[in-house]
């Protein structure tokens, strides 16, 4: 993004949407990981998944609060999380995909961790100091998430025949959602132009190198790219998001305007 020659001042509307985009992505992934707590393959993994969920939830809370602040209409983090419709969410479609099994969960986590590593690295130089500050903190968290998920990618990929198959299945199922990470959506393109965040395409090379290296070590095959792309950040969600939100939002929707 530093390469962007003409830095346009970021409008409040753009900063609001960018905060939502990053916040929604962290929130929905935290919600998915929260489903695991109490049900993981080993107690150690219950703790690890909960730790990651808490980091992501923390990021989401910062970002959604900030979004509400920028918007200036008095909407709180909870208003934004619980009272928006599925079509208003702009998280990446990858993070709304269901847990399926530990293999799918690890693949999803690994693909997004590798992406967030590059994203937060760049975001530290954001023209908006609040984003820069958040990125510096989130980057440390993400490094640990990546250590966890890449470790499991290799263990599962190069473990038993069954684990290899399961994690390869997960990879095959989720790969089609990776295109969105680097394709322009309205939000991140404009954010890049305004020096708010990185150009999504600029993250691709480092991400690909990282992912390929881990896949090789894990003895996994990289699936072929597909032409159809889901675009969560352009409000095109899979069927899973509305189910996820129906569950997450039930209390606030059932009892409007109540303090908890």
């Amino acid at each position: 993004m530093s390469a962007s020659p003409a830095i346009v001042a970021a409008s409040a509307q753009l900063r609001f949407r960018y905060a939502l985009y990053l916040g929604d992505t962290s929130l929905i992934l935290a919600q998915r990981l929260g489903e695991w707590v109490g049900h993981a393959p080993a107690l150690e993994e219950d703790l690890a998944l909960a730790n990651t969920a808490l980091d992501l939830l923390g990021q989401a809370r910062h970002l959604l609060s900030y979004a509400g602040e920028i918007e200036g209409k008095g909407r709180s983090e909870d208003d934004l999380a619980f009272l928006r419709d599925p079509s208003d969410f702009i998280n990446l479609a990858l993070v709304e995909q269901p847990n399926v099994d530990f293999g799918h969960t690890i693949v999803r986590q690994f693909l997004i961790d590798a992406w967030q590593l590059e994203l937060f690295e760049c975001l530290q130089g954001s023209s908006d100091p609040r984003f820069a500050e958040l990125a510096a903190k989130a980057l440390k968290e993400t490094r640990y998430h990546y250590r966890f998920s890449s470790g499991w990618m290799v263990r599962l990929g190069d473990g038993t025949e069954e684990s290899h198959q399961r994690v390869q299945d997960g990879l095959n199922a989720l790969w089609k959602f990776t295109g969105e990470l680097f394709a322009p959506g309205a939000v991140d393109e404009q954010a890049a132009a305004a020096g708010l965040g990185p150009d999504p395409a600029s993250l691709r090379a480092a991400w690909t190198a990282n992912v390929e290296q881990v896949l090789t070590e894990a003895t996994l095959k990289k699936p072929a790219d597909v032409s159809y792309r889901w675009f969560g950040k352009r409000h095109q969600h899979t069927e899973h998001l509305s189910h996820l939100l129906a569950e997450m939002q039930i209390m606030q929707r059932t009892y409007p305007g109540v303090q908890w």
Binding site: A42, E44, L47, F148, G151
Partner: peptide
């Protein structure tokens, strides 16, 4: 803690 190798042992110790 329980872990399969030293690297994982450090991670599990950190998490717990």
């Amino acid at each position: 803690i329980h872990a399969v190798d030293a690297r994982q042992a450090v991670e599990h110790a950190r998490d717990l």
